[in-house]
Simulated scan of single mutants.
Amino acid sequence: MPDTSDHTVPVLAIDGPSGSGKGTISRRVASHLGWHYLDSGALYRAVGVAAGWADLDLDDAGALVRCAFDTEIRFREAADGELRVLLNGHDATDELRTETAGAAASAIAAIPEVRAALRDRQRAFRQPPGLVADGRDMGTVIFPDARWKVFLTASAEERAERRYKQLKDKGVSVTLDGLLREILARDARDASRPVAPLRPAEDAVRIDTTGMPIDAVVARVLELTSQ
């Protein structure tokens, strides 16, 4: 399908590996600017969860493509400001946050046909007055003409620690060593996949968030958008 999004609408693309803080940073920046927000990873996680519900084989590309096209995915902001994800009418937000959903998302994201099926869904978020899009290929594939591109990173150890605290706060039983192994494995998968590998766009501003307070990262990104 052709790209029918409005290219006059400004886009801030924020990419980076798992645990780099791109979700938190992107939501805060979007809120500050009053722009729309796209969590592209949630789309892949949603397809992964839907595939699990349908007991699909993650190696069956055809079935996953059909799942990507047929699954209704909607975002809704809750009263507390939290972004909720509705999957075929059911609130699947908590399931999308599990490590199982993350692993499934990483696996299906390597399938070119699935990426193509979700490409136009992502571009449809480009609406006035602007869009902050976070993911792994926002600045390289989905919005290569984005006005601003940021690539966030952090040490694998810090990213695992962040994820560990996040999951423990939600009552999920995990180990730090296990999370570190999963993050390293996912980094390797995402960076080596043949289609849209995880890498910064050539014109992206790289920000290492290791040891940086969230407010400082948000301020740095907002500074870029003012230029």
Results as ranks from 00 to 15, higher is better:
138 M>V: 03
107 A>F: 03
74 R>D: 12
85 V>C: 09
115 R>P: 12
108 I>W: 03
110 A>D: 08
99 E>F: 06
80 D>H: 13
73 I>A: 01
95 E>F: 03
74 R>W: 02
125 F>G: 09
120 D>S: 13
98 T>R: 02
138 M>G: 01
91 D>M: 10
144 P>I: 13
88 N>D: 15
106 S>H: 03
78 A>V: 09
74 R>F: 05
129 P>N: 06
73 I>P: 07
95 E>Q: 15
94 D>Y: 14
144 P>V: 14
148 W>P: 04
146 A>S: 11
106 S>V: 03
137 D>I: 05
94 D>W: 13
81 G>H: 07
150 V>Y: 00
91 D>W: 11
99 E>I: 14
143 F>K: 10
126 R>P: 12
107 A>P: 03
136 R>P: 03
83 L>W: 01
136 R>T: 01
96 L>E: 08
124 A>S: 14
131 L>Q: 10
87 L>R: 04
121 R>D: 01
124 A>N: 07
141 V>Y: 04
115 R>V: 03
96 L>D: 05
143 F>H: 14
108 I>H: 04
143 F>S: 10
120 D>M: 12
99 E>W: 00
117 A>P: 08
109 A>S: 15
148 W>R: 10
99 E>A: 13
141 V>D: 05
136 R>I: 05
103 A>T: 12
136 R>F: 09
97 R>H: 03
109 A>E: 06
